[in-house]
Amino acid sequence: MKILIAILFGAAGVLGASQSLAAATPAAKAAYHQARDAAAAEYALARARCKSLAGNPNAVCEAEAKAQRVRADEEATAFYKNTLKAYTTSRLRIASATFELDKVKCAALAGNERDVCVKQAKATLIAAHADAKADKKAIEARANARDDKRDADYAVAKERCDAFSGVQKDNCVSAAKAQFSQ
Score class of each variant (00 low, 15 high):
41 A>M: 11
42 E>S: 14
43 Y>S: 04
43 Y>F: 14
44 A>E: 12
45 L>E: 12
46 A>G: 00
46 A>E: 04
48 A>H: 06
50 C>W: 00
50 C>Y: 05
52 S>T: 07
54 A>Y: 13
54 A>P: 06
54 A>E: 12
55 G>C: 10
55 G>R: 10
56 N>T: 14
57 P>L: 07
58 N>L: 14
59 A>V: 09
60 V>C: 10
62 E>R: 14
63 A>T: 10
64 E>W: 08
65 A>G: 03
67 A>W: 02
67 A>N: 05
67 A>H: 06
67 A>Y: 05
69 R>F: 02
69 R>S: 02
70 V>I: 12
70 V>S: 01
71 R>N: 01
71 R>F: 03
71 R>M: 05
73 D>A: 08
74 E>D: 05
75 E>I: 07
75 E>V: 07
76 A>H: 00
76 A>C: 08
77 T>Y: 08
78 A>F: 00
79 F>H: 01
81 K>M: 13
82 N>F: 02
82 N>Y: 06
83 T>P: 01
84 L>T: 00
85 K>M: 07
85 K>T: 09
87 Y>C: 00
87 Y>N: 00
88 T>R: 06
88 T>V: 09
89 T>Y: 01
89 T>N: 05
90 S>C: 02
90 S>R: 00
90 S>M: 03
92 L>E: 01
92 L>Y: 00
94 I>A: 01
96 S>Q: 13
96 S>G: 11
98 T>S: 04
98 T>Y: 01
98 T>L: 00
98 T>F: 01
99 F>S: 01
99 F>T: 01
99 F>W: 09
101 L>R: 04
102 D>N: 06
103 K>A: 03
105 K>R: 14
106 C>T: 11
106 C>S: 08
106 C>M: 13
107 A>N: 14
108 A>G: 15
108 A>C: 12
108 A>Q: 15
110 A>I: 05
110 A>F: 06
112 N>R: 08
113 E>K: 13
113 E>V: 05
113 E>I: 03
113 E>R: 11
114 R>K: 14
115 D>C: 02
116 V>P: 00
116 V>Y: 07
116 V>Q: 13
117 C>L: 06
118 V>I: 15
118 V>M: 07
119 K>D: 11
120 Q>G: 07
121 A>S: 09
121 A>K: 04
121 A>F: 04
122 K>I: 08
126 I>Q: 11
126 I>H: 11
127 A>S: 15
127 A>N: 13
128 A>I: 03
129 H>S: 08
130 A>Y: 10
130 A>S: 15
130 A>Q: 15
131 D>T: 09
131 D>G: 02
131 D>N: 08
132 A>N: 03
133 K>Y: 07
135 D>K: 07
135 D>N: 11
136 K>Q: 12
137 K>V: 01
138 A>F: 06
138 A>I: 06
139 I>P: 02
140 E>G: 04
140 E>K: 12
142 R>Q: 13
142 R>D: 11
142 R>E: 11
143 A>L: 11
146 R>E: 08
147 D>C: 12
148 D>L: 15
148 D>Y: 13
148 D>N: 15
150 R>K: 13
151 D>F: 04
151 D>E: 08
152 A>Y: 06
152 A>K: 08
153 D>W: 10
155 A>N: 11
155 A>Y: 07
156 V>R: 07
156 V>T: 09
157 A>H: 01
157 A>E: 06
157 A>Y: 02
157 A>T: 03
158 K>S: 14
159 E>W: 09
159 E>S: 15
161 C>L: 09
161 C>S: 10
162 D>W: 08
162 D>T: 13
163 A>Q: 14
